[in-house]
Design a protein around this nucleic acid. Sequence first.
DNA 1: GGAGGGTGTCTAAAAATTAGACAATCAGCC
DNA 2: GGCTGATTGTCTAATTTTTAGACACCCTCC
Lengths: 175, 175
Amino acid sequence: MKSYGTILVIDDNVAILTAMSYLLVDTFEQVLTTTQPDDILKLMAQQPIDIVLLDMNFAPGVNSGSEGLLWLRAIRKHHPDVPVVLLTAYADVSLAVKGLKNGASDFITKPWDNGELLHKLKDVLDMQSEIVSLDEMEMQHIRRAIDHCHGNLSRAAEMLGITRQTLYNKMKRLD
Amino acid sequence: MKSYGTILVIDDNVAILTAMSYLLVDTFEQVLTTTQPDDILKLMAQQPIDIVLLDMNFAPGVNSGSEGLLWLRAIRKHHPDVPVVLLTAYADVSLAVKGLKNGASDFITKPWDNGELLHKLKDVLDMQSEIVSLDEMEMQHIRRAIDHCHGNLSRAAEMLGITRQTLYNKMKRLD
DNA sequence: GGAGGGTGTCTAAAAATTAGACAATCAGCC
DNA sequence: GGCTGATTGTCTAATTTTTAGACACCCTCC
């Protein structure tokens, strides 16, 4: 229990934030909440956040969640490895889809089911990509580059910013 | 024109494949089509494919696209860098959402609009992540690792499979 | 047949990585 | 307060990797 780290919840409705706090406090070591999206990046800079729960339906009458999308993009830009789960209105599937295409990990429609919400958050965190060794990451990237150059090693090496011989070395060394 | 490489289209309906061929031939250098999902990986192994267009609604009466999801996952697993765009039935948004969460780049609902289809395919290819230099990729991964270890450099170095001093070196060298 | 581009291999110099050590600092704990 | 363990920043010398440059060879295109 309580092994899921820190969660940051953003919603402009204080009642929802309180409800979320009660729900999440048993699962997360720390629950941060804010009604001010402007605080997101500041909070995330101050301390390590493990997952973000972002309400997409800001301010009554505001332009259909596009503001939420902007915040999502801002989060993704500065912290590409922190998963973001979206809260959207039940009807607004298209917004959720836009969110997913912008890098959100999952979404939950309001009104939500507590059990399902917790389950999805845990799922996302369990799926978190482990950090692999630098060598392994290097090889993955090298394979990508070679693939991208359709097998042309000279071009791949140039693209990677290393010499062709170094590319040979690395391919030989790391299988 | 014709600078968008090779596209692979999978659909169990031959009529759709022919229609697609006519539509895509002006934009792509090569248009491969198949009704056999089993051929996907074989085709992709034989030649470099730049984008895949995958119909999710297989065989009349088959279990709601879950087969399509399996193929999507298989493609993503073997070729994580080749974008996959899905074709789904108009009503089946939930399937499209599942597809996006499984790594699809975008989806198009049937019946489709030719202009929109081409536009989306081009968009996906234009957004294709460029191959960055090995050093840059290295630094991104190092930052990820340090973040993951909440700033503990010793642990990050161990996780990356390098010595602490090397971590210092790389951080100093590459800003 | 020649030109251009790609491959595989080699050398010697330059640079990075390694293991190992050291004192200084910070944390929690008795 | 004082102890202990972990972490940091810095250093050295040996080892390994990377680099630039060169060479012969194999393609393909014209």
